[in-house]
């Protein structure tokens, strides 16, 4: 027993704070490039402040899958995910942080935002300008499956918001529009990155509904092949962040984790976000990178859909509107 205790003590000494601080940030797919840069900036700042070296470990994957990993025991200190619903699940199912986590940081704990835009083939051969064009016959639309992809749910809600405004809230007409839209979808990949491959690499589809930052990455990756179209209306996606309090407490990284997330709101971090095509909250950073972010009429999920939980229930759960539009085909 004594040796066992000694061993655990030794191993904890070896892995923890004697030599360097360590933090595990569990995030979703398209934030890879942003957090690489942000982690370096924060580590530098942390060293100046405390004199300690810091290693931030990153984990990326589909947002829902990442949340499940944390619930099942992946010991994340902080989570930076795509949907507040996913962090809600960690709070509710895993009991790892308080239910009011979203009030802990400014702007609904979302230091940066994004939205859904269109990516089309270079020169826009099909002349796609707005959501209304997507339901014309002969147009192929690429978007992932909302049952398995968080990004796909934002696409769906953005389309819904457009139709809702256009038809003045006439539910039957809105559903008809959504049904016509998904009739033009030949492939529903399981995740956003899968859809990117289908559109950009396989050359399938005329228009790809994409995260704004992912759309810019496609332009970088496949130069001269695609272009971005800004629709008249879209949805404000607020990817939230939170300290996984129980894990942080166990690791003794509470202060560090809090400082890490707070730094996301600093001028430096906001600038990095803008550079990586996330819309900064900070007005100065937003102004600096305004070339990347054309003005769009953005609706919020709270105002338009009564919050994430409600939207999930009405649209994406079994028997929701998404299931409905595929019925009786």
């Amino acid at each position: 027993m004594k040796t066992f205790k000694l061993l655990t003590l030794l191993s904890s000494l070896l892995t923890s704070s004697i030599f360097a601080d360590e933090l595990l940030n569990v995030s979703y797919d398209p934030t890879r490039e942003f957090y690489q840069e942000f982690n370096a900036a924060f580590a530098k700042q942390w060293k100046q402040q405390t004199g300690k070296a810091l290693t931030v470990k990153q984990s990326h994957g589909g947002s829902g899958k990442q949340a499940r990993s944390v619930i099942d025991g992946l010991s994340a200190d902080v989570v930076t995910l795509a949907l507040s619903g996913d962090i809600d699940a960690i709070a509710k199912q895993g009991n790892l942080l308080p239910a009011d986590w979203q009030a802990k940081y400014p702007d609904h704990s979302s230091p940066y935002t994004s939205t859904i835009v269109f990516v089309v083939r270079k020169g826009n051969p099909k002349g796609i300008k707005d959501w209304g064009d997507l339901v014309q016959s002969g147009i192929k639309v690429i978007t992932p499956n909302p049952k398995t992809s968080g990004g796909a749910r934002w696409n769906y809600l953005a389309a819904w918001a457009y139709a809702d405004h256009k038809f003045g809230g006439d539910q039957a007409k809105v559903k008809e529009y959504i049904r016509a839209l998904y009739q033009n979808v030949p492939v529903l990949d399981t995740g956003a990155r899968g859809s990117t491959t289908t559109f950009a690499q396989r050359g399938i589809g005329d228009v790809f509904l994409s995260w704004e930052n992912e759309a810019h990455l496609i332009e970088k990756e496949f130069p001269g092949k695609t272009q971005i179209i800004i629709p008249s209306i879209s949805i404000l996606a607020e990817p939230p962040v939170a300290v996984v309090e129980k894990n942080a407490k166990k690791h003794g990284t509470e202060e560090l984790a809090k400082a890490y997330l707070a730094y996301l709101y600093s001028a430096e971090a906001q600038d990095i976000a803008g550079k990586n095509f996330y819309r900064p909250r900070d007005a100065k950073a937003l102004a600096k990178w305004s070339g990347n972010f054309p003005k769009i009429n953005l609706v919020t999920i709270d105002k338009e859909f009564g919050g994430w939980g409600k939207a999930q229930k009405i649209h994406f759960e079994d028997g929701g509107t998404f299931d409905e539009i595929y019925k009786g085909r």
Partner: peptide, 15 residues
């Protein structure tokens, strides 16, 4: 292609 009612397989529904 994972189209509902057309090309979805059971393991995908589990996921």
């Amino acid at each position: 292609g994972n189209l509902p009612l057309k090309t979805e397989i059971l393991p995908l529904l589990v996921v």
